[in-house]
Amino acid sequence: MQTLTFRTATVADIDAIVVLVTSAYRGETSRAGWTTEAGLLDGARIDPEVLRGDILRDRSLVLLAEQDGQLVACAHIADEEGAGYFGMFSVSPGLQGGGLGKRLITEAERIVRQEWGRTQMRMAVIDVRHELIAFYERRGYRRTGVFKPFPYGDERFGVPLRDDLRFEVLEKTLEGSAQR
């Protein structure tokens, strides 16, 4: 049985994170998993400089999941506007569907709740990603009906293949003890 460990990313992890995130969302490699955005977006999924900022910013971290020393999943979490933010959720395509992502989400929620004292977690999901939204709903997230525009023209986040993309904010109340 492989051991899963969590740790916080450093700037030395940026290249490996970019490879993992790209493999989960873009190009042919991503089609091996169910989280692919290959039919919606082309190009980059994450910009290394944006990632560097997320790693170095206060109350923001990139959570890494490793199996036997190999990077297999990651997510960005931050304390934004009085709530936790969850994004850049990526699991290696060949390992999707095996419970690894659920464990990563649970650890991210634990950090936001117990270490940062936040009782809400929010995320923004492309609203045409119905399977992904359903996955989050099964984890207790709810659709808020709040929409944000897709950053058309900013290729740091991809090249849209459709003109109807937008984000919907999902939210979850985190249960358990909260400490500051």
Rank of each mutant, 00 (worst) to 15 (best):
L104D: 04
R52N: 11
E131V: 01
T10I: 09
Y25A: 09
F89C: 14
R110V: 05
G84S: 11
Y25T: 05
A65D: 06
R142F: 03
I55H: 14
R139F: 03
E137F: 00
R129I: 08
G84R: 13
I14N: 12
P160L: 03
A108V: 08
E137D: 07
E168N: 08
S30L: 02
G140D: 02
Y152L: 06
G140N: 06
D164C: 04
P149Q: 02
T22C: 06
G82Q: 10
I111N: 12
I46A: 15
D13I: 08
L132T: 14
L174R: 12
A32I: 07
S177F: 04
T35K: 08
I17K: 09
A65N: 08
T35H: 11
H76K: 10
K172C: 04
E81V: 05
R122N: 10
S23R: 15
R110N: 11
A16E: 09
Y141V: 01
P48W: 06
F167N: 00
I17M: 14
R31H: 03
Y85C: 00
G117C: 03
A16L: 01
F167W: 08
Q2K: 13
F135D: 09
G153I: 06
E175D: 13
R103I: 04
V159I: 14
A134I: 01
D47T: 10
Y141W: 06
L174C: 07
A44S: 15
T22F: 03
R45E: 14
G153Q: 03
L56Q: 14
L63E: 06
F135L: 01
G94W: 05
A134V: 07
M121V: 07
P151Q: 07
G33I: 02
T106N: 10
A108M: 07
A24E: 05
M88C: 08
G43Q: 15
D68K: 00
A75V: 12
Q2M: 11
V18F: 09
R122A: 01
E37I: 04
S60Q: 13
I111C: 09
S92Y: 13
G101Q: 04
L100E: 09
E81W: 05
G98P: 02
F167E: 01
A9V: 05
Q120E: 08
A12I: 03
E131C: 05
G176V: 04
T144D: 05
S177W: 09
F89L: 15
R57V: 05
E81T: 02
D79A: 12
A12D: 15
L40T: 09
D58V: 01
V62H: 11
R156F: 03
Q120S: 06
